[in-house]
Design a protein around this nucleic acid. Sequence first.
DNA 1: TTGTATGCGTTATCAC
DNA 2: GTGATAACGCATACAA
Lengths: 371, 371
Amino acid sequence: MCYGQVTISEIVSIDMSRTKTTIRDVAARAGVSSTSVSRVLSGRDKTQMRPETREKILRAIAELSFTPERAAQRLRAKASHVVAVILPDIANPFFSLLARGVESLAVERGYCTLICDSENSCGKELQNLNLLSTEGLDGAVLVPVSSPDCARLERLTQEGLQIVIADRRVQGYPEIGAANAEGSYELTSYLLMLGYRRVGYLAGPAGVSTAEDRLAGFEESMAVHGVTPVAIARGDFTYESGRRLSLKMLREKEPDAIIAANDLMAIGALRAAESRGLLAPGDIGVAGFDHVPWTQLVVPELTSVRIPSFEIGREAMALLAKQLGGASDVAGKVFATELVRGATTRRVRGSKAGRSATRSHRKGAAGRPHA
Amino acid sequence: MCYGQVTISEIVSIDMSRTKTTIRDVAARAGVSSTSVSRVLSGRDKTQMRPETREKILRAIAELSFTPERAAQRLRAKASHVVAVILPDIANPFFSLLARGVESLAVERGYCTLICDSENSCGKELQNLNLLSTEGLDGAVLVPVSSPDCARLERLTQEGLQIVIADRRVQGYPEIGAANAEGSYELTSYLLMLGYRRVGYLAGPAGVSTAEDRLAGFEESMAVHGVTPVAIARGDFTYESGRRLSLKMLREKEPDAIIAANDLMAIGALRAAESRGLLAPGDIGVAGFDHVPWTQLVVPELTSVRIPSFEIGREAMALLAKQLGGASDVAGKVFATELVRGATTRRVRGSKAGRSATRSHRKGAAGRPHA
DNA sequence: TTGTATGCGTTATCAC
DNA sequence: GTGATAACGCATACAA
């Protein structure tokens, strides 16, 4: 209203007095209405605009270095264009990479991503989930700590929030993850092929789909090859649990190989074996799962199954964007894993394939800067 | 306006029809005005309210499971209560821990934190910085990739954004970091005390304060002890640069110890030495900087200087909160470092102190779950 | 092609 | 103690 009588000098003084420059200031300066400014900003020119008008407006925007107020846009649009990626443990490179995958696509699709760290705690995860609602986000890529609170998830989706589960499977949601069972089957078969026979297994926590799938893959391969596991122990994906369980297993069952459900436990097994004077790959074979970059700084290089975490994150975001766009043909995707033949298992007889494969991986991954 | 005549059944139907439940719906249901509801929500009862009124309102809120609209609150308040923490590399546990420190205090102070990953790219860092402005955040804890764009920083603060620099020093900003020079001095002196004399140094990138400070501490200790470095090389904090530079150094200068400006380069040095048949700590001493958890999975355990990244993050957030609260007595803080005596340097003669110290650290840190 | 008017949901200011 | 009202800054239906 009163803007009609505002002179340029007055606008400047307003600007000086710490008041946010609004779309109307721009309009006044360009000598047009705020509607036209809004049209220029929103970009999509359904309605054509005279080039010179647009020029004037753009100039005014630049001169006032105007930035639209997100809060106001969101209030009108009833959408924030912000999505969260909720991770069990942000300090774990496996998940950081997954987050990067999410972000990489989010940027392309015009979304801003909010990375949330559950610090391996279901309570913190719930807090993060609640954030979705209280902060007015549009949706989330969720990598659950273990089995998530399905009732809560249900309520959130009823509020209109879109949620995609990644890496770990949850009943009733499309699967974006890796072929864990198959990868585990392949890994186990590889060790059996190398001649290991007294194989022990360090499983992950019950109820976590990745842990269960890997265990299933292991058991199936063993069964198919007619070999019986000397022991199966349940760990919790930590280095310490891997070490402790391995010590016990080595003492009681004398395995000639230990396969762990992730790299951290595998390294625990490696150290446990060393402490008993057993060296890989001669005295004992050791293998893990994940193949995150830092694994490769450990010697000897671990035989492991690579999970494409970046790709999983990216695909999860693709699905989320699709859902936010109103699509209902939500299809999950399962990525293939890749067996990385390291030095903690015997070499294939008369072949150097394993070694060189590991080498080629090493370069790209270990070059990550630090501190 | 029309709310005065809305009946309960109508409200229910409104709720059904996907319209967001507002503060007015709550007011109507409780038979009060929206002002009163707002008062209850904002908590701070400057003006006393009759307990029974408050009860009615709380009941209505619960019954409608009402959640205030953040966008509207922000639009009114002209503040988002969201801060960013911008990191050079989210996949680096050193920084993830720093982020956790920020978050831990942010929660206490009622802020929501947005973790941004610069992926070691100044361009991405700039994008993240711009996010502050476009997304309407209140401020940020910034850990710059290298020397940040000071002009841009200046402009942001003039927009009213509060920015605190952490870990790395930037001219004109309060310092929240560690005593890098002192830690480096102590580390170097320790190696000299152990008898190493032909010491080489792997420095970090020029222009990064942590790199410069550590180099300065090294040089001062050497000078004080009257020892001349056999070589000083500039790396870029990556494993690969550490390995490459070490190979060259080992070939040309035959050092009996290599000190690196971070752990990743130190591990590179360790592997380079091994590839030439030199084992630590007997043939060569190796030491690094940071002491992040995964370092301890590497054998032999690295002698290193621990930087309290969590505490740095937390303190940075404390400062940011203070600034956002309108305080001007902004004082930085420099944290002490801690020398961790690992197995890549000789033991102190006739003492087990070093060994046990490392042990005690190992437990807590290596227990981080995975995958 | 451009402008007018209205409301998104909340809270601060006043009046009662 | 409590309530009516006016912004906050933007985008849209509708009018011109």
